[in-house]
Design a protein around this nucleic acid. Structure first.
Lengths: 223, 223
DNA sequence: TAGCTTGTTGGCGGACCGTCAACAGCAAGT
DNA sequence: ACTTGCTGTTGACGGTCCGCCAACAAGCTA
């Protein structure tokens, strides 16, 4: 008889196995809520023993965090869009690019960023918040706005808040279709313009005619 | 000897007991994430057997939903604020009222509305979305804006999206203090004004001078 | 082919949750 | 004051899920 008819399981490089498990986990976490995806499900989907998940990722929660991290790392904004024209034009193009990117990830993006997976987990919030910071910094940089360091924390916080609007409207768009893509883009562009004007009031005059009702006081922290 | 020295437990009316459990659950869910609050914890906190929670609320998830519901029902906006003055003034007052209300609920509100509790649960999302609708409708009504029924779904979706901005910025404010209350109020007011102008473009001229760069097309679904 | 490295398995122990039959507080009836 | 009955409440049982770890085996090397 053949010396080793067929091995009962195949031995993979750690990186390969890790990647394979990550993909299965990503798919399942996109289909069902966090609590309803058991490690047994993921293991079965990947065709491995359940204990292997703990071996590679530690806790189930850690595996989920890895999934979120990989999902939120969005590649190259700056290479794919030109940054010319008025502030409004640039804003609209960057929002458009962002919606394109999200559209490719689809439901998994919504499930991960949205009402969440895990319940208010500090680590998860840190990761998402960090990803929001990156996205915000990219956007601001793309808009050609330099961050003066004194207000950095405040500006980042404002952009993270804007991220809340982004996610909520995208959820409306992707999930139920209660907003069309045009609606979403309009909403996000207008809001971003307003925020930029508040955070960087000195740039207001760059965008064509100034607003009629410019609030003279309290456009920034008193200095 | 005394006939019944002291009963080992006290018998309460169902409504009383329910309320007592709800309060303990509310406190605990405000302190820790959903998954880290066991029904045993809640039962111990309330000085009650664990099975009683299931008797009154069914699943642990149902108890959590009850907590969220009670948390999101915010009483009387319309009675407490006058609705006179320009659109900007009314917006700023309503935002201010909302921030006051949230401030009283504190961390629990943030934990409940925020990154959530349960993982993307349809029922939970329905509840939160419904509460957002109520808050949005109250706000719009308070602003003196009548909803024309044709665009109702779209308008509600936009206001729910705005709710995402509200929650995110409030989280920045309450949690880490990365935004001051003034920052939060400024951000939310400006954004709300913009949204109202987009959703109800015909009301733009009510608020002083019109914007210089008013977008003539695509201010609504084509009809 | 024998030996060694290490990727992988499978079961153990513990935590948590939903259910349900039995128990007991307590108010009404005698 | 004692008994009866209603029902609020308890405590344990069965099941699921997860983290851990010793044993196992795939596959390279000599």
């Amino acid at each position: 008889m053949s010396p080793a008819a067929s091995p009962r399981w195949k031995r993979l490089e750690p990186d390969e196995r890790r990647e394979q498990i990550l993909e299965c986990a990503t798919r399942l976490f996109g289909e069902r809520p966090y609590a309803e995806v058991s490690t047994t499900d993921i293991a079965r989907e990947a065709g491995v023993a359940r204990g292997l998940l703990n071996h590679y990722f530690g806790q189930k929660r850690d595996l989920y965090l890895k999934v979120v991290k990989r999902m939120l790392l969005m590649p190259g904004l700056e290479e794919s869009v030109t940054m010319t024209g008025t502030l409004r034009e640039r804003v609209e193009r960057s929002v458009e690019w962002y919606l394109d990117t999200v559209a490719t990830h689809g439901k998994t993006y919504v499930a991960v960023t949205g009402m969440g997976g895990i319940g208010s987990d500090p680590e998860l919030e840190r990761i998402i918040s960090e990803a929001d910071d990156v996205a915000a910094a990219k956007t601001l940089e793309f808009l050609g706005l330099k961050v003066e360091v004194g207000n950095d924390a405040r500006h980042r916080a404002m952009m993270r808040s804007y991220g809340g609007l982004v996610k909520a409207s995208i959820r409306e768009w992707i999930r139920g279709g209660t907003l069309s893509r045009e609606d979403t883009q309009l909403l996000l562009s207008e809001a971003l313009i307003v925020i930029v004007r508040d955070v960087f009031p000195q740039l207001a005059q760059q965008d064509g005619p100034a607003r009629g009702d410019a609030r003279a006081p309290k456009t920034g922290p008193k200095r």
